[in-house]
Write a protein that binds this DNA or RNA. Structure first.
Length: 537
RNA sequence: GGCCCCAUCGUCUAGCGGUCCAGGACGGCGGCCUCUCACGCCGCAGACCGGAGUUCGAGUCUCCGUGGGGUCACCA
């Protein structure tokens, strides 16, 4: 008799809710609904370095916004809790110990330094990287000595060195792996927390997960998971590895090439059912080929048979078209009024904006023109105005790029936190606030004057700020390229001039003023780049 | 690089051996509708990665290439 279907998603709270998480969640939920099963949310926060409660909150917010609701999870509870792995650390530890006792795992005392050196050596010799199993067969005395010396250790899995492990993937059939090619994975880190491999197996078993539906990037570690199930003597779930969402260049979808946070789409005013509809049609098709369908219709017709395994490109253009289709065909005027009111002009959002502009306007009709950049997507940029007088575009890019990069890691998006962080970071980048802040202001608002920068950023929110910083960065890079071309041209012209002057000075006795002029020609355009620049475009 | 996955129009895909001179959608182009724009409608261009094999017959099955992707952490 088969067990009731239970599936889960296991996001790691190390960043904003990812569109890939939503994609996998959607198929898990559909499968659960189709089979009358349960859908579980489990937070995989065993990475103490990077996990943040704030990200966990946002992941839940993003999934909830889309209507991808879980039956059991850290917030709603359930009979198999706790649903946050950090709270299950003791369980994981016990299981790791059990494997050690049974001889399926061992303590490894190798230091980070040793492992790094090992990897470097392997790389130098063009060998396959991997742990050399140095601690696999330590004698009891040595282990005891290390333990008494309080040496830090991890627990590693003792992989068989022979034979194969077959993954029976529902989508891909039998996938074979040589056990010898699989590393002795770390199961328990020296901080006492489990790695993904241990935690996901133990928790999936304890939570009675029947089907593991996850992204294809996991398929290579599935043999380890299967072996773990065997070592514990447990029944493994059914494996289903979904294709990976891609950028336009076919690489795994990433934030540098696509808006990747669910909250980006929320902020852009996409309509949740349209988002689900679009995600569902990446790799999956309705039996009758319909492209417009509801989540319920998706569930009713769902089957993994209809999955296409090539990694689909996330195409903003088609996605946008589909969203428009919902506006035109699925939503009434009243629906749109509601949606706009909740998403675009929510009281929460207006409450952030009004305090920033009330001193700057005198009557209601001034509000929209004064705040248009709070309600639109991209903004028109005056790239020239962004450049500090004494810096080049290249230098500005060199500061803007890391700034843009690190905004994603900025957990606290309050004005004061942004200000403290930005000021420190600006200094680190070798810029003064006077130089960098105006550029940021223009990037995020399209204006040279706005309410206080950090209040404005905080109110705009991470999604919009990131988006505008990225597009400003692209514009600056283009300007830097132009600038570079111009400088090279000027340098070559200066060289010509110098050559001519040198030639002239050979023919006639040295003329100090000619040399002066030549030197000036060589130096000046570089020192004052904005001079000849402006009329050039 | 080793291992693993994948492979039909630019993109998302239909196709589960004959009904495919390969169908639909986005995008592109042209037209119609129309006070404008948009929507909508009509039409056009556009693909089976290559080579062997199996078969009476291959986009569909097998193998080998090629290409793309993933993965090789005390991250998930």
């Amino acid at each position: 008799m088969s067990r009731p279907v239970r599936v889960r998603i296991a996001p790691s709270p190390t960043g904003e809710p990812h569109v890939g998480t939503a994609y996998i969640a959607l198929f898990n939920l559909a499968f659960a609904k189709k089979n009358g099963g349960k859908f579980i949310l489990r937070i995989e926060d065993t990475d103490q370095e990077r996990s943040r409660p704030e990200w966990e909150r946002q992941i839940m917010e993003g999934l909830r916004w889309l209507g991808l609701l879980w039956d059991e999870g850290p917030d709603v509870g359930g009979p198999y809790g706790p649903y946050r792995q950090s709270e299950r650390a003791e369980i994981h530890k016990q299981h790791a110990e059990r494997l050690v006792e049974q001889g399926h795992a061992y303590r490894c005392f190798c230091t980070k330094e040793r492992l790094d050196a090992l990897r470097a050596e392997q790389k130098a010799q063009k060998l396959n990287p991997g742990y050399d199993r140095h601690c696999r067969d330590l004698d009891a005395a040595t282990i005891q000595a290390n333990l008494s010396a309080q040496k830090e250790f991890v627990i590693r899995m003792k992989m068989p060195t022979e034979g194969q492990t077959t993954v029976h993937d529902l989508l891909r059939g039998e996938v074979q792996f040589e056990n010898g090619g699989v590393d002795d994975q770390v199961l328990l880190k020296s901080d006492g927390y489990a790695t993904y491999h241990l935690a996901n197996v133990v928790d999936d078993h304890l939570m009675e997960i029947t089907h593991v539906i996850r992204a294809e990037e996991w398929i290579n570690s599935t043999p380890k998971h299967i072996l773990l199930y065997q070592m514990f003597g447990w029944e493994a779930p059914v494996w289903i590895h979904m294709p990976l969402l891609r950028n336009a260049d076919k690489s795994k979808i990433s934030k540098r090439k696509n808006p990747v946070s669910i909250l980006d789409y929320k902020q852009r005013g996409f309509y949740p059912p349209a988002v689900l509809n679009y995600l569902a049609m990446l790799g999956w098709t309705m039996p009758d080929g319909r492209e417009l369908f509801s989540f319920q219709e998706f569930v009713d017709n769902f089957s993994f048979d209809r999955m296409h395994l090539g990694g689909p490109t996330f195409d903003m253009e088609k996605f946008t078209w589909l969203n428009g289709k919902y506006y035109r065909e699925k939503l009434s005027d009243e629906d749109l009024v509601q949606d706009f009111r909740e998403q675009l002009f929510s009281a929460d959002y207006l409450r952030k904006i009004v305090p920033l502009v009330r001193e700057r306007i005198n009557k209601g009709e001034d509000f929209i023109p004064a705040t248009d950049y709070f309600f639109s997507g991209d903004v028109t940029l005056d790239v020239e105005a962004m450049k500090p007088k004494k810096k080049t575009y290249k230098e500005l890019v060199a500061a803007f790029e890391p700034y843009t990069e690190r905004i994603d890691a900025q957990v606290d998006f309050s004005a004061s936190a942004l200000e403290a962080w930005t000021r420190a970071f600006t200094e680190e980048l070798g810029f003064s606030g006077k130089e960098l802040f105006p550029a940021i202001r223009i990037a995020i608002s399209g204006r040279e004057a706005s309410p206080p920068l950090f209040d404005t950023m905080s109110a705009l929110g991470r999604a919009l700020v990131r988006r505008r910083l990225r597009s400003a960065l692209a514009a600056l890079k283009a300007a830097a390229t132009e600038e570079n071309k111009r400088l090279q041209k000027e340098a070559s012209e200066a060289k010509k001039l110098a050559d001519a002057a040198a030639k002239a000075s050979k023919e006639t006795p040295a003329d100090p003023s000619a040399v002066q002029a030549t030197l000036a020609a060589m130096v000046e355009p570089v020192a004052v780049p904005e001079g000849p620049d402006k009329k050039g475009r």
